[in-house]
Every structure is written in C-alpha cells, then in structure tokens.
Design a protein around this nucleic acid. Structure first.
Length: 271
DNA sequence: AGAGGTACCTGGCAGC
DNA sequence: TGCTGCCAGGTACCTC
C-alpha cells in the first residue's frame, strides 16, 4: 500500500486524533516485524504525551515529551484509530491505548513495517541519518538531480526510487511521474539533460501532491485512519494499465521489470 | 563506489 | 473445491 501520499494521509489523520493525548498502556501483540519491537516500550511509553506528528520520507515520527516513536508501514501496514473497547483485527500487532479511551492500532499483514524508539531527536536514528531530500521541498529540483546523477548508469526509475537521493518516490509514482515527464524508465540516469530533470522534478512534485490531495492511492488495501479509501487510483495514467491504450497516444502501455519491480510506460510518449 | 540480487512475510489471484 | 505458483505498494543488507 503505502507510498508517500498514503503516509502523509496517515500522518494527518493520526495527528488530529492523538496530539496532546497521553499514553495509558501499550500492547505488543506480535513483536516480530522487520525489526523486533523493543519490549521495553510497554514500560517506557505509558505516561508520555504526544506532542506532534511529522514525517521523514515514509517514516512516521510520533514525537513525545521524551523521545520519538518511529513507524514505517512497509508494504502492507496501516494505522487506524478506534475506541479502546472495540475488537481487534487480524494482524493488529502494536496498540497504543490512550487515557481518553481511544487506541491507535498498527496493522500489517506482511510485517515488513517497523516500530522503533529513539530517545531525543529522530535525526539521531541511523535509519534516518542518510536519507536524501524531501521531494516536496525546494531543495529537490532539476539542478539537484542532475548533479547527483552524473556518472550514474542505473535506470532513471531506479535512481528516483533511491532513498539516498530522494525519499518517498515509490513504485507507482515513479512510473507515473516518468510518464508525465515523457522519460523512458530504462534511460540511464547519467544521460539525462538538465532541462529534462527540471521537468521530472516538477512532475514528481505534481504527482505526489495530487495524490495527497486525493487522500492517497487505493489499489487493494489502502485505507486512511478513518477507514476511507484513497481516490487517486482512478487517475493513474500508466501504472497497472499494461496493454491498455495510452491516455495520450493510444498505443498499448508496456509492462517491464526494472530492478525486480514492475514498471509501466508508453513506448510512444516516453523516450 | 556502484550495481545487482536477496531477504523479510502474508494474502490474493490465476491456472490447473 | 483445493492445490500450486506467482505476484504485490518497501528497503536494508549482502556480494561482486
């Protein structure tokens, strides 16, 4: 499910629900996620108050008055709020019960996500230390991508999905943004001109922003904190549309694999 | 340093 | 109906 717009949608949802709420108890039901959920969270978190929610790439940062809870949704995770007495669902692995009788549930069937704790500032955590720029901020621009890509032979699609370069561009939006920019996904990153990178950074920002405005993409299983699906999937131009006519030129959309990930593009519109 | 592949895990679906 | 194999939104980490 989650690419950056889905994570952003989730952050906004939980921020409204848990900011200034105080944790009563913690329930770790399945600690074995991508990394083990630290057992001591059940002892250290109760009594802490949530101060704000931020996002770094696809990491959700829940700031308390004594440290940061770092949550990644992996491939299939989601967060939802419910009343503390409401029944749980399959794959509810981690629960934060608040004093106001609400509960934040972390559900993740594939368990590729994680729940970690960092005392002090999140920046100190090794997982966040080496991340690239945020795609929606001004330092992500054509000049930046152009400079970073010189002498790089990787396919442009793989390059823009590299979190050390820019965070938050996932498999769906990489295909979509490259289509909008008219760039072939297998094009070597080092061979792309500055003007094309200027266009590409623009289409990446637009694609992500548009999806955020729609509440994320629902493919199979993305639901926001309130249980509502996202609506962006109806607007995907190439992703998941193999063999269907291109929305611009009517040639059939092609499907290939780049770095073991399915990739969609139009051979007519993308060079 | 860069490129490529593997691993983690469950569930849904197509095909037989 | 039930089995098998394949595919899936992410990303750290390993080897060459």
């Amino acid at each position: 499910m989650p690419e950056l717009p889905e994570v952003e949608t989730t952050c906004r949802g939980i921020a409204a629900a848990i900011t200034e709420q105080t944790i009563a108890t913690v329930d770790i039901r399945q600690p074995q996620l991508r990394w083990l959920i630290p057992a001591e969270l059940a002892v250290t978190l109760p009594g802490l108050t949530i101060k704000k929610i931020t996002r770094r790439g696809k990491y959700i940062l829940i700031h308390s008055n004594n440290g940061v809870l770092i949550i990644h949704l992996g491939m299939s995770g989601c967060l939802r709020m419910q009343a503390s007495n409401q029944s749980l669902k399959k794959h509810d692995h981690f629960l934060l019960h608040f004093k106001n009788k609400t509960t934040l549930c972390f559900n993740d069937p594939r368990r590729f996500g994680c729940v970690l704790w960092q005392e002090g500032s999140a920046k100190q955590h090794p997982l966040l230390a080496e991340l690239g720029v945020e795609p929606l901020e001004d330092d992500f621009c054509g000049d930046y991508l152009f400079a970073k890509s010189r002498r790089r032979n990787v396919a442009i699609k793989q390059f823009i999905m590299d979190a050390k370069i820019v965070v938050g561009v996932g498999n769906i939006y990489a295909s979509e943004a490259l289509f909008s920019a008219g760039i072939h996904p297998e094009c070597a990153a080092g061979k792309i001109s500055l003007p094309r990178y200027q266009l590409l950074t623009t289409t990446i920002k637009q694609t992500l922003q548009q999806a955020i405005n729609r509440g994320g993409t629902t493919l199979k299983d993305f639901f926001a904190v309130d249980g509502k699906p996202g609506y962006f999937s109806q607007e995907l131009q190439v992703y998941g549309r193999a063999d269907q006519p291109c929305v611009q030129c009517s040639k059939p959309v092609k499907s290939i694999r780049i770095a073991q990930r399915s990739t969609f593009y139009c051979g007519g519109c993308q060079r």
